[in-house]
Design a protein around this nucleic acid. Sequence first.
DNA 1: CAGTGAGCGAGCTTCCGCTTGACTT
Length: 780
Amino acid sequence: MQKNLVIVESPAKAKTLEKFLGKDFKVMSSYGHIRDLKTKEFSVDIANNYKPEYVVPDDKKKIVSELKSEAKKAETVWLASDEDREGEAISWHLAEVLKLNPEKTKRIVFHEITKNAILHAIETPRHIDVNLVNAQQARRVLDRIVGFELSPILWRKVKPALSAGRVQSVAVRLIVEREREINAFVSEASFRVIAEFVLPDGATLLKAELNKRLKTKEEATQFLEACKKATFTIDDISTKPVKKTPAAPFTTSTLQQEAARKLGYSVSQTMMLAQRLYESGLITYMRTDSVNLSDLALGTAKEAILENYGEKYYKFRKYSTKTKGAQEAHEAIRPTYINNEDITGTAQEKRLYELIRKRTIASQMADAELERTTISIDISGLKEKFAAVGEVLVFDGFLQVYREGTDDDGEKEQENGLLPPVSLNDALKLQETVATERFTQRPPRYTEASLVRRLEELGIGRPSTYAPTIQTIQNREYVEKGDKEGVGREYTVITLSEGKITEISKTEIAGADRNKLIPTDIGIVVNDFLMEYFPDVLDYNFTASVEKEFDAVAEGGMIWTDAIGRFYNVFHPIVEKTSAVRTEHKVGERELGADPVSGKPVFVKIGRFGPVVQLGAANPDDKNAPKPQFASLIKGQSIETITLEEALKLFELPRTAGEFEGKEIVAGIGRFGPFIRHDGKFIPIPKNLNPLTISEEESVELIKDKRTKEAQRSIKKFEEEPEMEILNGRFGPYISYKKKNYKIPKTVKEPKELTLEEAMKIVNEAGEKPATKKRAVKKK
DNA sequence: CAGTGAGCGAGCTTCCGCTTGACTT
C-alpha cells in the first residue's frame, strides 16, 4: 500500500521530486488544470449567481482516472501545485474531482526543489485557501464573459470566427495605435555638427561634436562660416566615474526579449527550446515572472564566480520584481547546475542555455566601472562648444561575462572610445567640420518581444500566455509579421574643409522595417469598433483594476460573485445595446465614389473572406435586381487608403497576362491569394509581384520555376508500379502510393535506394495502423 | 485546391491560464 501521493503540475518536476522524497512517496503530475469551463458553451450560469459549470476535458480524463485510483490507495495525498492563484485552483479542482477526504489531504508549497525546502514544506502543510481559489474563479469567469459575449458581436458585425478578449484585444490595440502614431508622425530635421581637430603635436586627431543641433541649413552654414575664422582651445577636461550594473536574472518575458535581440529567436521558438532544456533538467522552470534566485543557486553562483574570476568580481545581489501583478510562484530562469557549462543538445538549445547561464552568473557579479572623460573645446567668438567624450573601462566586472542587448533599431549610438592625451588650454587646429542633416525618429513598430514587454508592463497576460496570445492575434489576422519598405529621403551634408564650404545632397532609406507587427484592415476595424463601444474593456488599466478586485477576493475582503456581478451589470447591457444597433452598413465600410462607366456606387469593407471592394449596392428587397460585384484587395492595399481608381482596377481581375506555348496565361485572386493559371495549372504569385501588373515575361518565369520544382520533387519513380513514388516534401522524403502519403521510417538511410518491395512493405505496414486523421479542412 | 461572397436554409466560430504530447505531406 502506497503511503503518500504527491501531486504537482508538471511531469519534470514530479521526476526530480520523487528522487528527493524516497520510497514512501509516489509523485504524479496533473499536467496543469484538470478541469475547466466547457469549451463550446458559455458555462456560466448567470441566473444562478454566476455559477461556473466545470468539466474534465477529454484529453485529461485518462490522467484524472489514474490520479483517482492512486489517491484511493494512498494514506495521505499532498497537493503540491504552485503557490499562486492558478495553482491553488488546480489543487482545489483536484480535491473536488478526485473526491479527496479532507482529513487525508494536505496542501503544501515550496519555492525551490531542494531536499530541505521540500522536507520543510511537508512539515508545515496547510489547507486549501478558498479565498485564493475564488479569486481564480473570478478571473476565469470574467475572461469567459468578456470573450464569449464580445466575440459573437464581431461575428455578426465584422466577420465570422473573429475573437475578442481581455488580453488579445489590448495587444491588438497597442499595435493599431502605434501604427497610427507612425502615420501621424512628422519628423523634424536638424543639423548635427562633428569636427575633427589636430592636436598641438601636429599629428593626432580628435573628433568632437557640437553641444547643440542647428535647426536650419542657413544656421548650419552660418556656423561653419564662423568656424573659418575662429580659434579653438581646450577649456575644460573633466573625468567622472560611471557604473554599470548587471541585469536581473531572466523571467519569461526578459528571456523572450533577449533571445530575440541576441539570437533572433521568435517568442514561441524561445519557449519551445526552453521547454526542452527544462525537461532535460538543465534549467529551472521557464514560465515565471520572478527574478528571485534560490539560496542554493546564490551559493553555487558565488562559488563559481570566486573560483573563476576572483573575489573582486563577486557581489551579492537580491533582485525584486517591479512587474505589476507578478505572482512569483517560481524562481527566475537559471541553470539547474551553474557549473554545468557544456550541455548536450541542438545548437539552438546550446545558445539559449549559454545565454541563461551567463545572465545568471553576471547577475551576481560586481558592477563594471568606467571613467568617462569629456573634453570641452571653446570656439572663439561663439557661445557654442565642441565636446569630445571618451570612455575607459577601469574594471570590467560583470561585463566580462554578459552584456545586455539593446533594442535601438535606428541610428546606432557610437561607442565612445579612448581619447588621446591633451592638456588644458591646448590650441587646436580645425581640420574639417561636417554638418549632417538628421531627422527625429518615428516611434518603432512592435516586435513580438517588445510587445510582450509592453504587455508585461501593463500587467496584462501571464508568462504562460505571452507566446500563445501573439499567435492568436496573428491567426485571427488582426496583425501580421511583415516588412515595410522604407522611402528614400534626401538629406544635406555641409562640409568645411581647407577654408571652403561645400554643400551636397545625399539620399538614405528611412523607415524600413523587418519582421515587425503590423495591423491588418481587420485588426484596425475590429479595434475601432471595440474602442467605440467597449472602451472600458480595452482600457490599458482594465486588467490592473480587475486584478485589484481579485486581490481583495483573495484576501477575503470581497465575495467573488459580487465582483463579477458588478462588472456584468454594467457590461452586459452594453453588449445587448450594441447587438441591437442595426447598422445599414458593415463596420468599417466606406463608400469610395461612383463607377464612371455604370454610375454604380463603389464600397470597400471587410467581407466574409477579408477586405473587399464592392461594385453596386445590395438590393435585398428586389430579387431580380443585379447582384453587386466583389473583388478582394491585394497585398499592400488597405481599406483605409484605397482610392476609387485602385478599386475599379480590381474588378478587371481575372485578366489575361499573356500567352505561353500557345495557351493563355490568366492572372487573378482566388481563395488562396493571387495566382496565375496556365494550361489548367495554378501557380501562386509571389509577394513582390501583383496580379494587376504581372507581365507575360514574369508569368513565364513563374511557370518555368514551377516546372523545375516539380521535377525536383520526385526522388524516385518505379516503372513497374506508376502509382508508387518517392517524393520530397516539407518534412523530408515520403512515399506516395495511390494518392495517399506514407512516412518513411527513420531506419531508412537513403530513401533513393528503396526498392519497390521495401516501399510496398512500408505502405502495407502503415495500412495496418488506423488511418491517420486528416486535418479538418474548413469548408465554406 | 481557385472566376468565392447580400443574407428563408444548418451549424459553426470565441475567452485566459495551467500543462505536454501526438503527429506531421
